[in-house]
Design a protein around this nucleic acid. Structure first.
Lengths: 192, 192
DNA sequence: GCCTAGAAGCAAGAGATTTGCTTTAAGGTG
DNA sequence: CACCTTAAAGCAAATCTCTTGCTTCTAGGC
């Protein structure tokens, strides 16, 4: 989210909203690399010093905006069982994150983030989605022995982390089959 | 390594070396945040435009230097068996990478790296170290059924990726026990 | 309806970045 | 070995970004 609590509805909130909007519009229009603080300020109808004072610099502003864009906007689809739920979610996660745009957002989020707040937020989004899927599986009852539903942390280690690691460090050769394989590996062997 | 092939021994090579050295010295002396291109240039005895032309901007230069610092300087220690070898390596990896300095280098490496070359290099370093450990295990022969020695890719997914993911996205609560647990989870269950 | 404090605006100064042109030197050629 | 070619470095001017002190505005509290 944004770096500071803002009185909602006040002038601060309006400025923040218009700056975020300006970033998104300009990102689309002139490309990420051409963004500068003065440019964003002009589009947002704000003086540059306002941005510098509130966000510090461009990378922190981008980090802020990136985290917003990485927030999932829908609950994971329900396929009626744990395995397909997880597999589908993993595939979609990979799809969104591994695109050039997705990678750029992840990097932005990580970058302008000295204290790790924004990165933590991204991770929390994923964890929430996974948690929802697992809770659904548990709620179905009969589906699976309760003991075989993995922990959230385990899903993060076995599915989310490998996906993210490869997206960031080795973008080559990532595909849906790999994502499905991770899920299969996790569910296929009675590991927790 | 560095962004372009340089005729070794030529003037380019000298400039590159002195710039890299200047970055490392100044990082230690004035702190990472106080680094600027002109400052580095002055220390390196070079004009700023040289740096701008060769590296583009400060983040790309830092990325370059960071990758060099992330290169392991020693082979993993030999403890006589696969499990302790991997566990010790994972612990050391975590130690180095999770330190404030280590995290900063990882982030620098990821940041100024539009095409992923530098990030790929980091990943390759880790893969090489793991590969060495696995090759050693295979060479020992009797130790373990050949079939139970995991693939490099599997070790990356199960050990390296979770460590890196948590270092980047959730630095809290990381410790040697967690690293050991990852290795134990991998080796403990006949997964590949 | 006034006060206060936290933000935003403004503008000047300092510093970073870009760029066209010149100079240097590494490596190849006759 | 002297000469040529070419990639890279130096230089300097112009531009743009960023910082900062001060002023002005406005939301929310009294």
């Amino acid at each position: 989210m944004s770096r500071q609590m803002v009185r909602p509805g006040g002038r601060s909130a309006r400025v923040q909203a218009s700056v975020h909007t300006a970033v998104r519009e300009l990102e689309a229009e002139v490309g990420r690399d051409a963004l500068t603080v003065p440019l964003v300020a002009q589009r947002a109808g704000v003086t540059p010093s306002t941005i510098y004072r509130r966000w510090g610099d461009l990378t922190e502003l981008l980090s802020d905006v990136a985290v917003e864009r990485l927030r999932p906007d829908t609950a994971p689809k329900d396929h009626g069982a744990l395995a397909p739920d997880l597999a589908a979610w993993a595939e979609q996660f990979l799809d969104e994150m591994a695109s050039p745009g997705g990678r750029a957002y992840i990097r932005d989020a990580l970058l302008g983030d000295p204290d790790g707040t924004n990165a933590g937020q991204c991770s929390a989004y994923a964890a929430d989605q996974v948690d929802l899927i697992l809770a659904r599986a548990a709620a179905r009852g009969g589906e699976i022995p309760e003991a075989e539903i993995p922990e959230v942390e385990t899903v993060i280690d076995r599915v989310v982390a490998p996906l993210m690691y490869r997206i960031l460090f080795r973008p080559a050769g990532l595909d849906a089959a790999y994502a499905r394989g991770l899920v299969a590996g996790l569910l296929g062997q009675g590991d927790r």
